[in-house]
Design a protein around this nucleic acid. Structure first.
Lengths: 146, 146
DNA sequence: TATTGTTATACTCTATAACTATA
DNA sequence: TATAGTTATAGAGTATAACAATA
């Protein structure tokens, strides 16, 4: 019990950050024995869903800068979870290996359980409202409200 | 336009993280010329609201570990925004200086404008639902769902 | 013994600038 | 000229372990 007044508690941005941190911590815990960082796991999942995509495309989908994708992809390849083939001289096509697909499947199983646990905490109807509202807030970055 | 399939988009945890990042980026932009880090600004606001609080209490309110509070408080003191006095041999009472109070007031003005811009994006009633749901998710960390 | 503040350290995510080689 | 990938670097937040001084 902190006991201090925290006026930040009334702020949407602050509550988003705190709630996000709680779910991120649980996400990391659930996937802890994979010994992969959250960014590596999510990258694996996107590649599994999009065979022959490029590094830049994955980065764009996950809001990870090109420069930051490099070590993530390198790790996935070193672990034998992702393979890449040249498309032209500058583009690379990414695919998960069979081992990568197995890892992705297991990750999804755990993620769904993790999600279900948190979703169960919300009042009926609240989940739909929240899942609709979040992309709206997120979309503000590409529109006027930034 | 990424164009890639991103199954993560259906996940509560992932959407929270992305929306939080958007609001955090805007928060940083709005307070950019303060040349203080977000954690320093929020710490200042909590101290302004809770005269004579301790470092540990502020950390507990903001979910910042004791060890990580040290450089934050040091910066605020170096800038002349916060002062501290000894309570007993191991506890320090924190207070904002007049300069710190002015800074906190200006920060609040900008934060309220920033908040209003994002809240305006939500459908009627959605804001209340979201602001109720987020602390519930956050509270899961202290209860069973962790 | 437990608590407050501290130091040192490391990890993760994020950001920018500049480079290469290709298109 | 623009794009895909890369390198190097820096900043911010967060985490742990260990310590001194004090309660």
């Amino acid at each position: 019990m902190a006991g201090l007044t925290n006026a930040l508690d009334h702020l949407l941005g602050y509550q988003l950050r705190r709630a996000s941190a709680v779910l991120m911590a649980d996400f990391a815990r659930v996937l802890g024995d994979f010994e992969m960082r959250p960014a590596e796991i999510t990258t694996l999942l996107v590649i599994a869903d999009n065979p022959d995509c490029s590094q830049s495309e994955v980065g764009e989908a996950l809001a990870i800068k090109r420069a930051n994708m490099v070590p993530i992809i390198a790790q996935l390849i070193e672990r034998g979870l992702v393979a890449r083939t040249r498309v032209d001289g500058r583009s690379l096509a990414l695919r998960v290996t069979p081992a990568g697909e197995a890892q992705a499947d297991e990750a999804w199983r755990r993620i769904h359980a993790h999600e279900a646990r948190f979703k169960a905490l919300l009042a009926p109807g609240a989940l739909e409202t929240v899942l609709h509202a979040l992309p709206v807030l997120r979309g503000a970055a590409e529109n006027g409200a930034e």
